[in-house]
């Protein structure tokens, strides 16, 4: 599973080449993906993003998280140095058939977006009772 995920991403050179061809957003936020028996859990870092500037869509097995990180209010001040950028971002995830797409839940708090993607009942992990011989 982890290997399949890595392969989707491709090497940095491949991504840069694809980026020239298809165009890319300003930045890709970091994400963690976990799996339990009942669901996939996705956590995406979205600091500096107001709730109204965050958008999550599911369309034909593709989950897209996109939005805009707001500029920091610095009226009358000048930047001494800046390490992080603001602006548009986008992150795309391909969903498999075993996710119930109309029951995906999203929660946004403290600069984190947490998504719960429930699995279809027939693919959920079941505990197998071991009978004593």
């Amino acid at each position: 599973m982890a290997r399949a995920l890595a392969e989707t991403r491709g090497s940095s050179l491949e991504r840069a080449r694809d980026g020239f061809r298809t165009g890319m957003p300003l930045f890709e936020p970091r994400a963690d993906i976990m799996e339990t028996g009942e669901a996939f859990l996705l956590q995406v870092e979205v600091p500096a993003v107001r709730p109204e500037d965050l958008d999550v869509t599911v369309e034909r097995n593709v989950l897209t998280v996109r939005g805009r990180a707001s500029d920091i209010e610095t009226e009358g001040m000048t930047p001494l140095y800046t390490e992080f950028e603001t602006g548009l971002f986008e992150r795309v995830f391909r969903l498999s058939e075993d996710i119930v797409q109309d029951r995906i839940e999203a929660r946004h708090r403290d600069g984190l977006l947490a998504l719960v993607l429930p699995k279809k009942a027939d693919v959920r992990a079941r505990h197998i009772a071991i009978n004593k011989a």
Binding site: M1, A4, L5, T8, R9, S12, L13, R15, A16, D18, G19, F20, T22, G23, M24, P25, L26, F27, E28, A31, I33, E35, F40, L42, V62, L63, T64, R66, L88, E90, R91, V92, F93, R94, L95, S96, D98, I99, L117
Partner: peptide
């Protein structure tokens, strides 16, 4: 399964520069 995928967004040459910088 849940997989990160490529996105289709407006072209931005600065993204490529930033990517190159990060990769370097």
């Amino acid at each position: 399964m849940l997989m990160p995928a490529m996105s289709a967004f407006g072209f931005d040459p600065f993204v490529q520069l930033r990517r190159l910088e990060r990769d370097m």
